[in-house]
Nucleic acid binder design. Structure first.
Lengths: 237, 237
DNA sequence: GTAATAGTGTCTATAAGACAATATATT
DNA sequence: AATATATTGTCTTATAGACACTATTAC
């Protein structure tokens, strides 16, 4: 198909994924030289980007993604893309929106992108990478300090952040940033990272427990220099 | 392209639209013989369907929709499809979800469908049809009593109903079912139709006015056999 | 004991809902 | 006046947030 034929061809479909984590995985390339991944645990969201090697937007950072094979569902495509980029499967994956403006892809074939929104929790990133994730052209950035992005990917990231902050949705998934058991203080810090504000510990405790989604494991934290906190886990069903 | 080539081709993209109204337009074909469109104004939602003439699912009712031309945005495609089906433009249009399971379209080419959700208000339907809407194979059905639907369109309708009932979203658009001015009782009946429950008039009034989106026109209803109600309109900005 | 955070109690402001009471038009 | 709905008032309950207070561990 020639370039001018592509110009008038029906749109192709692709997925893109905005994958949030509370920090970059061990050994990952960091996009921002000043930053320190450890610092991320103190309260900001990070996400992986891929540097494009082809036109359009060659050399510019973009969200992980690609075309959809005939035998994969949309979600499967998004997950495979993330495994290839991050080396691991995300702990949570949800469809965000379909972006398909005529001019969004520049000059080439018309492209409709189904954007997905993913979470990587502590456990998800701690596990050894399943794939020898190519480090070349992949880096993690703080959501606060993103570089210029290809296509309309900046809009997609912004929309993903907004959606995650919509309370009724994020309350049910925030725990996925954490391991199997966690203290209420840890869970609260996840909410603070998502919202970008401080949250009253007393009120947060009451609300979180009132939801009925948390189970007291009977265990407590150890190794602290103060009163140890109870450990909870998220209810299975 | 042969049938077996289509089987393994990359997915094509299409739009489908779930268009709700408080009743069928004047003269429209009604899918349910027992029903009366006038009855719809008393509190149920109606939507237009198209009977398929080709395989797969020939003869089965389906949501209005079709492939996306290279020079139309997703929303433009949805709106054009609705104009062709209903003869008029909807008063509101919003993207719903992208459906793209591998097996959803049966045996043919893989299809990814971007579903849209539309509202037709009193004014939108009262206007004379812009297009000589072909009546053949188009009918309106009560959302309560839908026939069997092609593909996974039943899931799409169910999801559209659920989304419309999510309060924070529908409060801002419910007035679009009505004309330019309306009484609070009319607006309340829209909410009752959407929610499927009764709503206290006194409390509804307070909430609706507290939003600050309604403007008192200074006019009142006429021709009632009781105290006439004030007429409001929705604030422009 | 001291430091530090976990966890509890309580008060206030706001919102939601039930329901009684009053207002005002047509007939 | 009778009727029917509009509109207002009031009370109860639930919830969110601010913030003071108590508990328990390591050191």
């Amino acid at each position: 198909m020639s370039a001018s034929e592509r110009r008038y061809a029906p749109p192709a479909v692709a997925v893109s994924a905005v994958a949030f984590a509370l920090g970059a995985p061990e050994g990952a390339e960091l996009g921002d030289a000043d930053a320190d991944a450890g610092e991320a645990l103190e309260g900001t969201l990070w996400l992986p980007l891929v540097r494009r090697t082809r036109e359009p937007f060659a050399g510019v950072w973009a969200l992980p993604g690609g075309p959809i094979p005939w035998d994969e569902t949309l979600a499967e495509s998004a997950e495979r893309t993330l495994r290839a980029t991050v080396g691991r499967s995300p702990g949570y994956l949800e469809q965000l929106y379909a972006f398909g403006d005529v001019e969004r892809s520049g000059r080439g074939q018309r492209l409709v992108t189904i954007a997905y929104w993913a979470l990587y929790g502590e456990n998800d990133l701690a596990a050894q990478a399943e794939f020898p994730a190519e480090v070349e052209n992949i880096a993690w950035f703080s959501a606060d300090r993103l570089p210029e992005l290809a296509f309309d990917h900046a809009d997609i990231v912004e929309y993903a952040l907004w959606r995650m902050r919509m309370k009724t949705e994020y309350a049910a998934v925030a725990h996925r940033f954490l391991g199997g058991t966690f203290t209420l203080a840890q869970l609260r810090r996840v909410h603070e990272a998502i919202l970008g504000t401080e949250v009253d510990p007393a009120n947060f405790r009451r609300q979180a427990l009132a939801q009925g989604h948390l189970v007291d494991t009977g265990e407590v934290e150890t190794g602290t220099r103060h009163r140890p906190a109870k450990l909870y886990r998220f209810r299975e069903n």
